[in-house]
């Protein structure tokens, strides 16, 4: 089972990196959403994959019974999911607004923050050169 999950994590990671490398902001955002799920799956499998009971205490008992699953990775995942949910929502709005204002989703043609000067190198400006 661990092997299957490990391969799945690898495939998901590769897909999200592929998405993030596209020159399209929307795909980039989707890639980020995918990569955060990959990290969650990684945490999930790091807690050990075994068929066990949910970590709940049955009524009338004071401690959970034997063979309950480790609750901590699940709690960590839940926290991470909540955080990535809010960040993803924020990022979607940011991408949408950026598209509205800059009228492009290609990161390479967004040059408002680092304007390309005439005859400049990769970085976008020349020191002392003609403007």
């Amino acid at each position: 089972m661990e092997t299957v999950i490990a391969v799945l994590v690898g495939v998901l990671m590769a897909s999200s990196v592929y998405l993030m490398l596209r020159r399209n902001l929307v795909r980039f955002v989707l890639g980020l959403a995918l990569i955060s799920h990959t990290a969650n799956l990684l945490i999930f499998s790091s807690g050990g994959l075994q068929a066990r009971f949910p970590p709940l205490i049955t009524p009338g008992e004071l401690v959970p019974g034997p063979d309950v699953a480790n609750a901590l990775p699940q709690a960590l995942m839940l926290t991470a999911i909540v955080i990535s949910f809010s960040v993803f929502a924020f990022l979607l709005v940011l991408a949408f607004r950026t598209y509205q204002r800059l009228e492009t989703v290609d990161p390479d043609s967004m040059r408002s923050a680092e304007p390309m000067a005439a005859g400049a190198g990769v970085d976008g400006s020349v020191s002392g050169g003609p403007q």
Partner: peptide, 15 residues
């Protein structure tokens, strides 16, 4: 405009 542009880069790498 420049802020949105910068924010996209900042958010992307930070995430």
């Amino acid at each position: 405009k420049a802020q949105l542009d910068g924010a996209v880069r900042y958010a992307a790498l930070s995430l």
